[in-house]
């Protein structure tokens, strides 16, 4: 993989988030340098997924700002979309399309060509299934296909929500390897996970350490 020259630092200041009518976290800060990794921890419902969605730009932050190299992300959301790879809970797999067609569509939207698609499939060990329709894949294979989507087109910032769910031991090792390669090239990774993942020098952010202030009932509205 070609090195990603001049990757920026990704930074959040005073982030707050509301899901439904419930505040999940408030006044959360983080900073990620090029080549850095951030692991989000916290119990279910603490807001790890919400934080990743805020970072991706899917969910507007209720408070605070996100910045890339000091420039607020909101100033140019279309630039942010180009630099983000988001891997969520769903694998966005169309059952009637083949593995190669599924991956090819997402890769082509980001300008990757067929070689990139083939290389990514080989990297996650799905190259022998390229012509298999999506509905025949197992849960782990679907997850690997999602990972291949992240690999097929380059983007400096990876936001991975529980990437290792359903993966076997060998695939978890592959996951750790590709993350390490991405970081070696100057890429940034944010991972929300319950499973132990081998990420050397990763910073840790316990999302449940940022509870919203409990207001005085007199002031509640």
């Amino acid at each position: 993989m070609a090195p990603l020259a001049s990757n920026g630092a990704f930074e959040g200041r005073g982030l707050g988030c509301i899901r439904g009518e419930r505040p999940v976290f408030a006044a959360l800060d983080f900073r990620l340098e090029p080549g850095g990794a951030l692991v989000l921890t916290g119990p279910n419902g603490s807001g790890k997924s919400s934080l990743l969605r805020v970072m991706a730009g899917l969910l507007p932050a209720a408070a605070g700002t996100l910045a890339w190299n000091g420039t607020p992300v909101d100033d140019a959301p279309e630039l942010h979309r180009q630099r983000v790879h988001y891997l969520g809970h769903h694998d966005a797999l169309k059952p009637v399309l083949t593995v190669a067609e599924n991956l090819g569509f997402w890769a082509s939207l980001r300008g990757a060509n067929d070689d990139g698609v083939a290389a990514a499939l080989a990297r996650v060990g799905l190259d022998h299934l390229a012509e298999t329709p999506g509905h025949l894949l197992s849960a782990g294979q679907r997850r690997r296909l999602s990972l291949a989507r992240v690999l097929a087109a380059q983007a400096p910032l990876w936001l991975l929500d529980e990437p290792s769910v359903g993966l076997d031991a060998a695939s978890v090792r592959t996951l750790a390897e590709v993350i390490a390669e991405h970081r070696a090239n100057g890429g940034l990774v944010v991972v929300a996970t319950h499973q132990a993942l081998d990420l050397p020098d990763a910073a840790c952010l316990a999302v449940d350490d940022y509870p919203p202030a409990r207001p005085d009932p007199e002031d509640v509205w």
């Binding site: 707050g16 509301i18 009518e21 419930r22 505040p23 408030a26 932050a61 209720a62 408070a63 605070g64 919203p212 202030a213 207001p215 005085d216 002031d219 509640v220 509205w221």
Partner: peptide
């Protein structure tokens, strides 16, 4: 949030859940 939130101008990104609509 306390009544401070109510003094925020509209559009400020306060946590609206507790925004005090006292005014």
């Amino acid at each position: 949030m306390t009544s401070q939130a109510a003094s925020n101008p509209p559009g400020s990104r306060s946590l609206h859940r507790f925004a005090n609509p006292g005014r």
